[in-house]
Simulated scan of single mutants.
Amino acid sequence: MAQSHRFWNWIARRYARMPIRDQASYREKLDRTQAVLQSDWDVLEFGCGTGTTALEHAPHVAEIRGIDSAPKMIEICRERAAAAGCANASFDLAAIDRLDQPDSSLDAVLGMSILHLVDDRDAVIANVFRMLRPGGAFISSTICLEGQARLFRQVILPIGNFLGVLPRIHAFSRTNLIAAFEAAGYEIEENWQPDEDPMKAVFVIARKPA
């Protein structure tokens, strides 16, 4: 995801001030996630952005670690954690495809609004499977743009990425995303898209078999 550093560092402070556009769907995803999390769990969130979601979940787990490949995003995460007095959340500069995490060492991994940004989605899904303990959960929210907004995908995004003002977004379908989880060995517990709107992110809870 190195090609996106310029964009995310450039937008970090503005991004931190942006309101969440679909508060109802965001709240529903938080609730569905917290119904799965347990108080003694060790959790990782990759592509944690400005830390909002990690800090929402911190009271519900033992430890949560957020990682992001953009230094300015991690700077904001640490500021927010300190301001909230959140002792069980930590934030580090790292990328999921280069993270040296031991096998079967995590109870849950969160990947919110990130799988469509990584260069090798299937490798990331498999790497998370390796990290999870048996019975652990990979919880994600992913934009699936295949077949949607052709002008946006084929013209606007490539130009924006070339200029460094938009990240690279990979287009695939909801069906393809679920198939990738299943091919890696997960069992799908939730496959939810708000309002069945194809332009909204797909929320998935995928479980590593116990």
Rank of each mutant, 00 (worst) to 15 (best):
A70E: 11
H116Y: 06
L132D: 01
V124K: 03
L117W: 05
A62E: 10
K200C: 05
A179C: 10
D122M: 09
T50K: 00
R130C: 14
I156E: 10
A89K: 00
L177M: 07
A87V: 15
D107W: 01
S39V: 10
S39Q: 07
A183T: 11
E146H: 11
P167Q: 05
D68W: 02
A87I: 08
V109M: 01
E79P: 05
R168Y: 09
I67Y: 02
R21K: 08
P134G: 09
L99Y: 14
L106F: 01
M73I: 07
S140K: 09
R168D: 08
V43K: 01
W10Y: 11
G47Y: 02
Q38N: 08
F203P: 01
R174L: 12
V109K: 00
I76A: 04
A54N: 08
W8L: 11
W192S: 07
S104H: 12
A24C: 13
R207Q: 12
W10V: 02
F172D: 03
V124G: 03
R121L: 11
R32F: 02
F203E: 01
I159S: 04
C77L: 01
A84H: 14
A87L: 09
R130I: 03
E45Q: 04
R150C: 10
K29G: 15
Q23H: 10
L151F: 07
L132R: 05
F181Q: 11
Y26E: 10
A149E: 08
S113Q: 10
A184K: 07
Y186A: 03
A89R: 00
F138D: 04
V36L: 08
P134V: 01
R32E: 02
T175F: 15
I74V: 04
I125G: 06
A95I: 15
E75L: 07
R174N: 12
P167T: 14
R14H: 13
F129A: 11
L93W: 00
A183R: 09
S140Y: 12
R174T: 13
A84W: 04
Q148W: 09
R65A: 03
A12G: 09
A171G: 02
Y15S: 00
I76R: 00
G85E: 13
S105I: 00
R130F: 01
A70M: 15
P194H: 02
Q3W: 11
A149F: 08
Q154C: 15
W192V: 07
I11M: 11
E79C: 05
A16S: 14
F181C: 06
I156Y: 02
P209G: 08
A24K: 13
R168Q: 11
D122F: 06
T52M: 12
D107V: 05
A137V: 15
I188S: 01
A16R: 04
H57V: 13
E79S: 14
K200S: 14
G160M: 06
L30M: 10
A2V: 13
E45F: 01
N191S: 14
R21F: 13
F46I: 02
C144G: 10
F46R: 02
R6G: 06
G111L: 09
A12Q: 03
V202A: 08
S39P: 12
A210S: 15
A54C: 08
V128R: 09
L166G: 08
E28A: 09
A183C: 14
M73C: 04
D120C: 06
R14V: 03
